[in-house]
Amino acid sequence: MALGDTASTNVFSVELGEFQVKTVKCVGGLACGFEAVEVGEVTRLGSKSSGHAVQ
C-alpha cells in the first residue's frame, strides 16, 4: 500500500433488544505484493557464483 492510498472500513453490528450479539468489520482496498531481486556473488578468485532470488 503506497503512501496516500486509502482503505475503506465498514463496521456492522446486530443487536437483539439491548444486547449486541454480533459485530462484523470489513476492510477493503488493501493489497500486498512482493518483489524479487536476484543477488550475485563473486568468489575470492574473482569468478561469479550463481545468483539467487531474495524477497
Rank of each mutant, 00 (worst) to 15 (best):
M1A: 02
L3V: 11
G4K: 02
T6E: 07
S8F: 00
T9C: 02
N10M: 00
N10A: 03
V11T: 13
V11C: 07
S13W: 13
S13F: 14
V14A: 11
V14I: 11
V14L: 12
V14R: 04
E15L: 07
E15N: 09
G17Y: 05
G17L: 12
G17F: 15
G17E: 08
E18K: 15
E18T: 14
F19M: 13
Q20V: 15
Q20D: 15
T23F: 00
K25V: 04
K25A: 01
K25H: 04
C26N: 12
V27E: 15
V27L: 06
A31Q: 11
A31C: 08
C32S: 10
C32D: 08
G33K: 01
G33I: 01
F34N: 13
F34M: 09
E35R: 15
A36M: 09
V37F: 09
V37R: 04
G40S: 10
G40A: 01
V42E: 10
V42A: 01
V42W: 07
V42K: 02
V42S: 01
T43C: 07
T43D: 13
S47P: 06
S47D: 06
S47I: 04
S49D: 10
S50M: 02
S50H: 04
G51W: 03
H52M: 08
A53V: 08
A53N: 05
V54M: 01
Q55G: 09
Q55M: 08
Q55N: 08
